[in-house]
Design a protein around this nucleic acid. Structure first.
Lengths: 326, 326
DNA sequence: GCAATGGATGGTAGCGCTACCATATCGAGG
DNA sequence: CCTCGATATGGTAGCGCTACCATCCATTGC
């Protein structure tokens, strides 16, 4: 930077301003500095800048996994919105493990990110304490917390699951089984399972533990769970899979086995994934505002960085996508 | 840090060592410092550390998109390997736009990442120059460059595509159409298309432009392209889709339309995506070492940071996954 | 015509850490 | 007993930038 300043015939501080706050520098000075930067091949040292300004212009985000495209859409929304405002996005994955989540967040705090976006509302108490102590703005995504850490944006996983069960009931199904993800430290999955039970209760149906399967989010597991349900409890007439990965796996299993859907068993998912819409029969699912969750999360964080108060909770709702599978 | 030092009764530099190079500090001192850190709630300031040590222990990576799980696997491999060695991964997406790739890399260089992992071997000349000038270790992934920027790890997209055409020919298909991605600044897609033509030429078949479709990687586009091919050139007996997203879209279109596969038209993809294996008929595809590409990229970069010379190029090959769709 | 105003630029100090060298301490060996 | 080397700890300087205040000049209003 000293080189650039010498080359342009100005003080280093003016170069700094030309790079970071161009509006505060006269047009001709700016031109001279830009040429000098070009000539010297200067690359701004963001690390030094962050240290001096006490702001990194980076936001850290934790998602369970990258391989599930539902979170990819949210990250895309986050990233685009942040980039437009001159911020960068750091991404970490927790692999659905709260301890890994904590470690990723600790690394973010060491990097002094200006804000953090977490997936879900269940976090280790130690992590909650660390976040509070650090004073870093935080937004929880993909569910509505009863007690937000700071801010949140998402939808009610409980209500979405209940609505899907209502839909299945309205289609005349009564013996509705459930395939969902593991519930340990996963508020979204827990809420969906509770929504399933609530939907049954509402319709005067009783929830049977024999109708419930919990398994990691992989196509094969959806297929395996359905096959198991059909053999152990053949009386079922519908399956609600609380994730499209599992639902698609189940549906493909039916197609492979020649089981009519919804003739033998009706199927419904959640998440509104693109692949479900391509299948025959089209998978009944639930659309969530995946991209918008990210975009809103970005806005909320930037607002908080700009001085807005914590406590914002945004509900983006959901939309039923009825398909021929139910 | 000064607080911690006072609390533990040592000099700040000893605290620094306790955090960064614990082996150089006596056991009892370490214990005292650890307790002091606990008590004061000290969080290491990685930004200041990076400035002083001239090393950020961060690697930047650019992928075309996050929503395609094939790159997610590579990122997972990268991330795990890096974490195990105390490095962190920054992720940026180019959206298949070389200008965006350049901007993402520029941001990485400003952050002074210790290494960069790029997807593909086609980059804007300005970017190549910037990377050379910066001296940052770089590894190109997912293809074998004729002229590597620095190091590379991947496989021959050309040979993989040609092998798939050979497979289709061996199954008796002669009028083989092609559905691939847009070729602009995308070396993988270009190589696959060349592989397709080479495979045809080898078998004494001539490549017809009317048999070729180029379209962005979305399920719907695979379906649309196949439908278009079947109506405009109904004589085709096989389609090679140079990406599983397009191939799955095409296969689902056949299932929906009641077209027998491979009876009416045989189908083959590339990428070995999990969904293709779940379909009926199972999609013929090609497995690439997606995770290993990332893991190797990490090793190579860390080697370069440790002083290894540039020029390493690793070919991880590919494996044909014959399915019932061809 | 002169103070008041505002825009452009510069000097200085310091962000929090670590590299480098210096120093202190201890036990082993001659 | 003294030297030597190994291990543990400390002092100092500086990484490259920006916040803060000061300065300077041109313009404006009365």
């Amino acid at each position: 930077m000293a080189d650039v300043a010498r080359e342009a015939g100005v003080a280093p501080i003016t170069v700094s301003r030309a790079v970071s706050h161009p509006s505060q520098v006269a047009a001709h000075t700016l031109t001279a500095i830009r040429r000098a930067i070009e000539q010297t091949g200067y690359v701004r040292h963001a690390v030094a800048g962050s240290l001096a300004s006490k702001a990194t212009r980076c936001i850290g985000s934790v998602v369970p996994v990258l391989s599930n495209s539902i979170f990819a859409d949210t990250l895309q929304g986050l990233s685009e919105e942040l980039e437009a405002r001159g911020y960068r996005l750091l991404i970490g994955s927790s692999q659905y493990d709260p301890l890994r989540e904590q470690r990723v967040v600790e690394a973010f705090l060491e990097q002094r990110v200006d804000g953090i976006a977490l997936t879900g509302t269940t976090h280790l108490p130690a992590l909650r304490a660390q976040l509070k102590r650090s004073g870093t703005p935080v937004v929880e995504m993909w569910n509505l917390p009863t007690r937000p850490l700071d801010c949140a944006v998402g939808f009610s996983n409980f209500a979405a699951a209940r609505a899907m069960v209502r839909h299945l009931v309205s289609r005349g199904h009564r013996r509705i089984a459930y395939i969902g993800g593991p519930t340990y430290m996963n508020d979204r999955t827990q809420a969906r399972e509770r929504g399933y039970r609530a939907g049954l209760a509402e319709a005067g149906l009783k929830a049977r533990e024999a109708f419930v399967r919990r398994t990691p989010f992989e196509f094969e597991n959806g297929a395996r769970a359905l096959s198991d349900l059909l053999s152990k409890t053949p009386s079922i007439d519908a399956v609600f899979a609380a994730s499209d990965v599992l639902a698609v796996g189940a549906l493909l299993y039916c197609l492979k086995s020649g089981l009519p859907v919804p003739g033998r068993v009706a199927l419904a998912g959640l998440d509104g994934s693109p692949i479900g819409a391509q299948l025959t029969p089209e998978l009944t699912s639930m659309r969530f505002a995946r991209r918008e969750i990210g975009a809103h999360a970005a806005s909320i964080l930037l607002g908080r960085i700009g001085g807005a108060l914590p406590g914002t909770v945004v509900d983006l709702g959901f939309e039923l996508l009825p398909g021929a599978s139910s």
